[in-house]
């Protein structure tokens, strides 16, 4: 039972001595906070991009030539570029660029992380939301417009509430993906869960426990949120009369 005693000893060194488990616990907090704030930023920017893109898709051909049409065309081009760049480069590279180039003067690492993951996530969220908007029967828009509601009112009262219900599960899945992706935030010094494990590794020269522990914690969080999403999906389905 030599190996077992050794494992227990290593466990003690990794987590118990000097209260090193606190690195893990605060890491969980940072990871969740980073994921949550990034998703909020991603949804906010994503809604703007999706609004421009879906307005272009739905309205452009029917619009009369003028400043509005030109602006929409430019806006749509800009959004397409944004999507191509942020979905076409590794998130790791994006976070390095944001930390070392764009926000090099900022000392707030968490903020850099939120900006980097938020901008990245926005690209994916935008397409989720656009899909949700486009999935609503055009007859709904026509019914709203025929009553005299303008485009924005029709979107706000009729299309978006229905679209939101359809995309909620996909948004929740984006949260789960983001949760795992934030594990690279440690590279720019955010003390997230992965970084916490690396700190312990640096102090103790032990890899087994810290790495397997965070793997288990990530897995547990993902499983928990997946279960939550499933529950949400079932509830949404039930509310469809």
């Amino acid at each position: 039972m030599d190996w077992f005693t050794k494992l227990v000893e290593e466990f003690e060194v990794a987590f118990i001595v000097d209260n090193r488990w606190k690195y893990i616990v605060s890491g969980i907090g940072s990871t969740l906070l980073l994921t949550f704030l990034s998703l909020v930023l991603g949804v906010v920017i994503g809604i703007v991009i999706a609004a421009v893109r879906s307005t272009y898709d739905k309205q452009y051909t029917d619009m009369r030539a003028g400043i509005g049409k030109t602006l929409l065309n430019i806006g749509n081009g800009f959004c397409k570029c944004y999507l191509t760049i942020f979905r076409g480069t590794p998130v790791m590279v994006q976070i390095l660029i944001i930390f070392f180039v764009i926000m090099a003067s900022s000392r707030n690492k968490m903020l850099c992380g939120v900006v980097a993951f938020g901008l990245n996530s926005a690209a994916y969220v935008a397409e989720i939301i656009r899909g949700g908007i486009m999935s609503i029967d055009p007859g709904q828009t026509e019914a709203g417009r025929s009553l005299g509601l303008n485009y924005v009112q029709t979107m706000a009262y009729i299309v978006l509430p229905q679209a939101f219900k359809n995309i909620l599960p996909a948004l929740a899945n984006e949260f789960i993906t983001l949760l795992k992706e934030t594990s690279v935030a440690g590279y720019v010094g955010v003390t997230d869960l992965t970084r916490g494990a690396n700190i312990i590794r640096g102090i103790t020269y032990q890899s087994f426990w810290p790495l397997f522990a965070i793997a288990a914690i990530y897995l547990a969080m993902v499983m928990f949120f997946t279960w939550l999403v499933g529950k949400l999906e079932r509830r949404l389905k039930n509310s469809e009369r």
Binding site: G139, E142, A143, R145, S146, Y157, Q162, K165
Partner: peptide, 30 residues
């Protein structure tokens, strides 16, 4: 055009009621 459409009702082949609203809300929204 939005002002004019208020005075021109429209009824569609596929009804196009708002499925996320009650009948009452469908009728009182506009």
């Amino acid at each position: 055009i939005n002002l004019c459409r208020q005075k021109m009702g429209m009824v569609f082949q596929h009804f196009n009621l708002f499925p996320h609203m009650t009948v009452m809300r469908n009728m009182t929204l506009a």
